[in-house]
Design a protein around this nucleic acid. Structure first.
Length: 949
RNA sequence: GCUCGAGUGGCGGAAUUGGUAGACGCGCUGGAUUCAAAAUCCAGUUCUUUCGGGAGUGUGGGUUCGAUUCCCACCUCGAGUACCA
């Protein structure tokens, strides 16, 4: 068929992606195509993305990568007959909006709202199948009402290590009334005093409250916190990177403050054990395991010479107890002042003073430098009675174990270094090992010597024996330690959830759940007050009226019925610790989610997000979920069965080279040995062949207006380098631009085509034409210049083979999250069908469904053109049939000594012997052999032939 | 330092349990079409070669008829962690 000139080519029949995509995005929104039902006969599937913080910069092409993957999977599951929950929302409390507020006076709610609208616009353009009726925002009072509610539940709970679960605090009170706290095996602060039932009953109400704070799962305590003066707030351990704040890179110092904490350490063992049943990436699980940091060992008490007190240490090597030659305490250890002798006092005090002044960062930067002081005190070895000198040193951390170590220089390199530096003895207790130069820490090959009753034993046996003996004399027992610390939950910030807490006599009281939410008050300034209180201290209307159950003016505070409210706010991870449950029943005003909705959706089947949340969000949320589970509030104790970490998309920066002290820019390949200064040029000014648009560059910034160029072949070629995508590197590519120029379907497929989902990979817009051309080619299978060209012709065997090969591979790929290879598979399929000139509906109709998860807009349009009146989104996924792929012959690769030399087409019916015969009879075989007789012929029917000789 | 992960053409990457290395795409080269360009289509594109072939998946060994794939040692890069006793 020939078509005359161009004017009859209607715009409808061209692949007009902009028009098509806008049309279907509108259709989906108007028809609520992706609204999920909470009760359904269909099996459920919950596909979740980590919700974004809506930043002012908007999305770049790296952000939607994971969303596209989960969207493909969600759409695939709809075709497979599942009731799919695929929601999206915003983690909308956070520092940047507040920093912006401090600078500009704009209310964070205003900027957040604006940022969210921009995000929404950008997301809508990419064609996600989100159920927007379930959108959540952590900064919305209707959401944080329930964050506050969960906080109250945590406050009213304690952790029973015997039952291995959280229990209501009233049950703890009952235990205290009956037997005090001495038989209890509960998670509590280290400094919790022991008391009996009688003592409990005699306590004042306030004292009882103070006592309970030692047990509550969220509690107020004086804690050493990471204080960041520049940000004016405390930070959690996971918010500090290399001793400086993750946001902004400001210095962090240790400071003692009264703070809310979360008793996550109580859950350490369950958080660790729970990992085994999760289908999460192994590296991510390893990060959590390391962070939890379980160590099995013993607690040993050393009697102090001349004092009542004992020094307790934790060790993972009780088998090395006979190798102890000194003891080291953290400078902050509570016994240091008491045991220091008069003679050593001045030196010890000077040392403590010096170490306390050092910031966390200095301490970390300076690991090599060994420092310490002798206290003058001695402890007695529990078995030998030997006198052991007690030192202090800052290599011992106050926050881990007991803040004291028994130093075994022959078995621990740090102790060895310390001993070497101060000339302390290094007794050797290992059989056949020289420990004079360096410590021997290999547990597996340990044979203990010079160690009394454990000499000759290995690590395991000796450790068990030592623990047993220590128990006998009452100086120790087996003990498990975790590195995981309780998480500080207070932030001295404005833009976060207010605590539902007021203070009576300095003791925290929960606001009754019926009166939630406690809404964030208005403030004049977002900075701390002049007296150093958090920003909420600026609020005039911020006191709790216990009679009318409402927030009232601060001036009315009388400490009788009107009390001060908490001034801290919750950290960023509060809302994200439970939001996945809220999506199940987002609009509920009576509950954080109805039980039947929770029971129907259960858990997240697929969670996609970045691995940078390994020790933050992904640990805290598991902890909250376990707590909610213990209280019967959610049906499962792990909320995300499967998790995938999408890799980062990197930017491809462009560089121009300016000759030093000049205004001349030299094209990349002309630089040679000359001294040039590389300068980032905005990637939007560079084309696919790395040519710079010089005019655009000149008008980019005033200082380049007069730029002169030294060209190669009349062109200016830029240098390229892969870096993190960021505004400051001018390598940011916006999905909006890609959608405008190539369409969302192209963007979606290209993001997948870049490489494996989990891998980091550079973005290069140049390559996108390949995917775009593919979609144009796909379109042409269905639509000719004068309209739909799909026929009712019977599909040929080749057509069906191409189709079914594709069904099989694409289905496998989706199940394996190998989206990049399915894009290739589609390309191969369309190439083949084009070559076959296939226009048969029998093939092309299923192909539309197959590709719909990846390129939903073009699929909807083609589906419509094929005469369907409803969306393709719920069309059943094509069923693969093996029969179309059955082959009768095989193109056998014939190898000689493992190297493939030629191929030979043979019937698959042939036996091993017949194949061998056919191969040996071939001329090319004889040519390869050059007259030699093959030593061996390996024939794998259906696979390969290998001739050795 | 410790714990993971990864090294394949000019580039992104593919290769299901060991069985034709480089699929698919970008880029590049040549051609068709065009007054010309864009677009589109066709052919080629790991390196090397005396055009027979030879070499080749970070390096060096090993197992095997056969190794990108399994084992050992090493090198490089990336991530996490950082005195955790």
């Amino acid at each position: 068929m020939y078509y005359p000139a161009t004017e009859i080519v209607s715009t409808v029949m061209k692949y007009n992606f902009n028009e098509i995509e806008a049309k279907w995005q509108k259709y989906w929104a108007e028809n609520q195509t992706f609204k999920a039902e909470n009760l359904s006969e269909k099996p459920k599937f919950y596909a979740l993305d980590m919700f974004p913080y809506p930043s002012g910069a908007g999305l770049h092409v790296g952000h939607p990568l994971g969303y596209i993957a989960s969207d493909i999977y969600a759409r695939y599951k709809r075709h497979k007959g599942y009731n799919v929950l695929h929601p999206m929302g915003y983690d909308s409390f956070g520092l940047p909006a507040e920093q912006y507020a401090i600078q500009t006076g704009q209310h964070p709610a205003v900027t957040t709202e604006a940022n969210i609208s921009r995000y929404r616009e950008q997301l809508d353009k990419i064609g996600f199948s989100f159920d927007w009726s379930r959108e959540v925002r952590t900064s919305d009072p209707s959401f944080y009402k329930w964050t506050q509610w969960i906080f109250i539940q945590l406050f009213n709970a304690w952790y029973d290590h015997d039952a291995e679960k959280s229990r209501p605090i009233v049950e703890l009170v009952a235990i205290f009334e009956k037997e005090g706290n001495q038989t209890l095996n509960a998670a509590c602060d280290d400094d919790t005093p022991a008391f009996g039932a009688q003592a409990w009953k005699e306590m004042s109400e306030d004292d009882k409250e103070r006592m309970l704070l030692h047990y509550r799962l969220t509690y107020l305590a004086d804690t050493e916190v990471n204080w960041c003066p520049a940000l004016g707030t405390v930070l959690a351990n996971d918010e500090i990177v290399n001793g400086v704040s993750e946001r902004g890179g400001h210095p962090v110092v240790r400071k003692k403050m009264t703070q809310w904490s979360m008793r996550i350490s109580a859950f350490a063992e369950r958080l660790l054990q729970g990992l085994d049943e999760l289908d999460w990436p192994e590296p991510l699980k390893d990060i959590q395991r390391n962070w939890i940091g379980k160590s099995v060992g013993a607690q040993v008490s050393f009697k102090l010479k001349g004092h009542e007190e004992e020094i307790s240490v934790f060790t993972t090597r009780p088998d090395t107890i006979f190798g102890v030659s000194f003891m080291t305490l953290a400078p902050e250890h509570e016994l240091v002042k008491k045991i220091t002798t008069e003679a050593q006092k001045a030196e010890v005090e000077a040392y403590i003073e010096a170490t306390s002044r050092r910031s966390e960062r200095e301490r970390m930067a300076d690991v090599k430098n060994i420092t310490g002081v002798f206290t003058g005190a001695y402890v007695l070895h529990p078995f030998t009675g030997e006198e052991i000198p007690v030192w202090i040193g800052d290599y011992v951390l106050a926050g881990y174990g007991t803040g004291a170590v028994m130093a075994v220089p022959c078995g621990d390199q740090r102790d060895h270094d310390f001993a070497g530096h101060f000339g302390l003895p290094v007794p050797n207790i290992f059989e056949g090992v020289d420990t004079s130069e360096e410590a021997f820490a290999d547990k597996e090959h340990t044979v203990i010597a010079n160690s009394g009753f454990i000499s000759g034993m290995g690590y395991k046996e000796a450790s068990a024996k030592v623990i047993a003996e220590l128990e006998k004399i009452g100086q120790g027992q087996g003990k498990i330690n975790y590195r995981l610390r309780d998480a500080v939950f207070s932030r001295q910030r404005y833009w976060g959830e207010p605590f539902p807490v007021y203070y009576v006599n300095g003791l925290p009281k929960m606001i009754d759940a019926a009166h939630l939410p406690v809404e964030l008050p208005e403030v004049e300034k977002y900075l701390p007050t002049e007296t150093g209180e958090p920003p909420l201290g600026n609020a005039t209307r911020w006191a709790w009226d216990t009679v009318n159950h409402t927030v009232v003016d601060k001036a009315k505070t009388d400490h009788k019925t009107i009390f001060p409210l908490e001034l801290n706010t919750m950290p960023g991870w509060a809302g994200s610790s439970w939001y996945f449950n809220r999506y199940m029943d987002a609009g509920n005003t009576a509950d954080f989610a109805a039980q039947d909705a929770l029971n129907y959706w259960q858990d997240v089947d697929l969670y996609i997000g970045g691995s940078e949340h390994a020790t933050g969000h992904l640990l805290y949320s598991r902890f909250w979920q376990k707590f909610l589970f213990d209280f019967g509030l959610v049906p499962v104790q792990e909320y995300a069965r499967k998790l995938i970490n999408q890799g980062m998309i990197l930017g491809t920066s462009a560089f121009v080279y300016r000759l030093e002290n000049s205004n001349v820019f030299v094209s990349k390949n002309l630089v040679g040995e000359r001294a040039v200064q590389p300068i980032h040029a905005d990637v939007s000014m560079v084309n696919a062949s790395d040519e710079l648009d010089m005019e655009a560059f000149r008008s980019w910034r005033p200082e380049f207006a007069e730029a002169e160029f030294e060209l190669e072949d009349g062109r200016y070629i830029v240098g390229r380098e892969v870096e993190k995508m960021s505004k400051s590197k001018y390598n940011v590519v916006s999905p909006d631009d890609i959608c405008r120029e190539y369409g969302a379907d192209t963007l979606r497929m290209y993001e997948m085509f870049l490489g494996p989902l989990e891998q980091a990979k550079p973005w290069n817009t140049a390559g996108i034409t390949g995917v775009h051309n593919f979609l144009k080619k796909l379109w042409k299978l269905y639509v000719a210049q004068d309209g739909l060209c799909v026929t009712h012709d019977k599909a040929t065997a080749d057509n069906l083979k191409s189709l079914h090969k594709t069904i099989k591979k694409v289905e496998e790929d989706i199940e394996n999250f190998s989206f990049n290879t399915s894009v290739s598979t589609f390309m191969i399929c369309v190439n083949e069908l084009s070559a076959q000139k296939c226009h048969s509906r029998e093939v092309l109709e299923p192909l539309v469904v197959l590709i719909a998860p990846y390129a939903p807009h073009i699929a909807e349009e083609l589906w419509g053109l094929l005469g369907h009146e409803s969306s393709v989104a719920y069309a059943p996924f094509p069923v693969f049939e093996e029969k179309y792929l059955v082959e009768s012959t095989k193109e056998y690769p014939v190898s000689f000594n493992g190297k493939m030399r030629f191929t030979l087409e043979l019937s698959l019916d042939l036996s091993r012997e017949e194949i061998e015969k056919a191969v040996l009879a071939d001329d090319r075989t004889q040519k390869q052999l050059e007259g030699r007789t093959p030593k061996k012929v390996i024939v794998v029917p259906g696979k390969i032939v290998n001739i050795v000789g």
